[in-house]
Lab assay of single mutants.
Amino acid sequence: EVPFKVVAQFPYKSDYEDDLNFEKDQEIIVTSVEDAEWYFGEYQDSNGDVIEGIFPKSFVAVQG
């Protein structure tokens, strides 16, 4: 069931425009499960802007 919160276990950096880049310990709200390997989610950056994109499930852990 979406949405749910995950926390980055590792930093994720990608050159693909659709990917969500983040640092370790970033909290991310997952709004869609793309497939067995990928989530789609969002978070607010330090400027208060909402950043969204896809990212690999293996880089995050589900909270709770």
Results as ranks from 00 to 15, higher is better:
Y39Q: 01
F59R: 07
F10C: 15
F4R: 02
Q63H: 10
V30N: 01
Q44G: 04
S14D: 00
Q26A: 04
Q26F: 04
W38E: 01
A61H: 11
Y43V: 03
E52F: 14
A36V: 08
N47Q: 08
G48D: 04
P11C: 12
V33P: 04
D35I: 07
S32E: 07
W38F: 11
Q26N: 00
Q44K: 13
Y43L: 05
Q9K: 14
T31F: 05
P11V: 06
F4Q: 00
E42V: 10
E34T: 13
E23C: 10
D49W: 10
D35E: 06
Y43S: 01
D15K: 11
A61N: 10
E17I: 13
E42C: 15
G48K: 04
K24F: 05
Q9T: 10
S14C: 07
P56K: 03
S58H: 10
A8W: 04
S32I: 06
Y16S: 15
T31A: 02
I51M: 11
E17P: 15
V30E: 00
E52W: 11
P3H: 05
S14T: 09
I29V: 11
D45P: 02
F55K: 00
Y16W: 10
V62T: 10
V7Y: 09
A36Q: 10
D18M: 14
I54S: 13
K13H: 14
P56V: 04
L20W: 03
E17Y: 09
F4T: 00
D35G: 13
D25R: 05
E1I: 13
K13W: 11
G53Q: 01
P56W: 06
F10G: 05
Q9N: 07
G53L: 04
V60Q: 02
D18A: 14
F59D: 02
Y16C: 15
G53R: 02
V7P: 01
K5W: 11
E1R: 13
E27K: 04
Y39R: 01
F4S: 00
E27G: 04
N47A: 08
F40A: 06
S14R: 05
G48N: 05
F22Y: 01
Q63Y: 14
E1Q: 13
V50A: 05
Y39K: 01
V33R: 06
F10P: 00
N47K: 09
E34M: 15
E27W: 08
P11H: 07
E34R: 15
Q26I: 05
G41V: 04
F10Q: 10
S46A: 13
F4D: 00
Q9L: 15
N21E: 08
E23D: 11
D18F: 14
E52G: 09
K13D: 05
G53I: 04
F40C: 09
V7D: 01
I29F: 08
A8F: 04
F22H: 01
E52Y: 14
K5F: 08
G64W: 10
W38Y: 12
I51D: 01
E52H: 13
P56R: 05
F40V: 06
V62D: 07
P56T: 04
V30Q: 02
S32L: 08
E17S: 11
G53S: 02
D19Q: 15
V33G: 03
F10M: 12
F22D: 01
G48V: 01
S58A: 11
K5I: 11
K57T: 07
I54P: 05
G64K: 10
G41M: 03
K57G: 05
A36P: 12
F59W: 06
Y16L: 11
G64A: 12
G53C: 05
K24G: 04
N21M: 07
V50G: 03
N47I: 06
W38M: 09
E37K: 08
A61Q: 12
V33Q: 07
Q44P: 07
L20D: 02
P56H: 06
G64T: 12
F55R: 00
A36W: 08
K24Q: 08
Y12G: 00
T31R: 08
E27R: 05
E17L: 11
S58Y: 09
D18I: 11
V50E: 02
Y43P: 00
L20I: 05
E27N: 05
G53V: 04
P11S: 13
V7C: 09
S32H: 13
V62N: 09
P56F: 05
F4H: 00
P11W: 06
A8Y: 03
S58N: 09
T31D: 03
P56Q: 03
F4L: 03
E1N: 12
K24H: 04
A36T: 11
F40I: 06
S14E: 01
Q9A: 08
S32W: 10
A8C: 06
Q9R: 14
I29R: 06
Q26T: 06
D45F: 05
E27A: 07
A8P: 01
A61Y: 12
S14Q: 03
I28W: 04
Y39E: 00
D35K: 08
V2Q: 05
V6F: 04
F40H: 10
K5Y: 09
E34H: 15
I28C: 05
P11I: 06
E37F: 14
K24P: 04
F10R: 14
I28Y: 04
P3T: 04
S46Y: 09
E42I: 09
I51W: 14
V62A: 10
E17H: 11
K57R: 13
F10T: 06
E37C: 15
V30M: 03
D15H: 11
D15P: 12
S32Y: 09
E1H: 13
D35M: 08
D49H: 12
V62L: 13
P56C: 07
K57H: 05
D19A: 15
G64E: 11
G41D: 01
N47M: 08
V60P: 00
N47T: 08
K57P: 06
K13N: 10
G53F: 04
S46C: 12
Q9W: 08
E23Q: 07
E42M: 15
E1V: 13
K24R: 09
V6T: 04
P56M: 04
D19W: 07
Q9C: 15
E17T: 11
F59K: 09
N47F: 09
E37I: 09
Y12T: 00
E37G: 10
I54T: 14
E1K: 12
E42R: 14
V50T: 13
G41A: 03
Q26W: 04
A36L: 10
F10H: 13
E34V: 15
E1W: 13
N21S: 11
Y16P: 06
K5V: 12
D19V: 12
Q26C: 05
D18Q: 14
S46F: 09
V60A: 04
D15A: 12
Y39F: 09
E1Y: 11
V7N: 04
I28L: 05
D49Y: 12
P56A: 03
F59Y: 13
S58W: 10
Q44F: 10
E23P: 07
G64Q: 12
E37P: 06
N21R: 07
V33Y: 08
I28N: 00
D18N: 14
Y12L: 02
A36R: 09
K57Q: 10
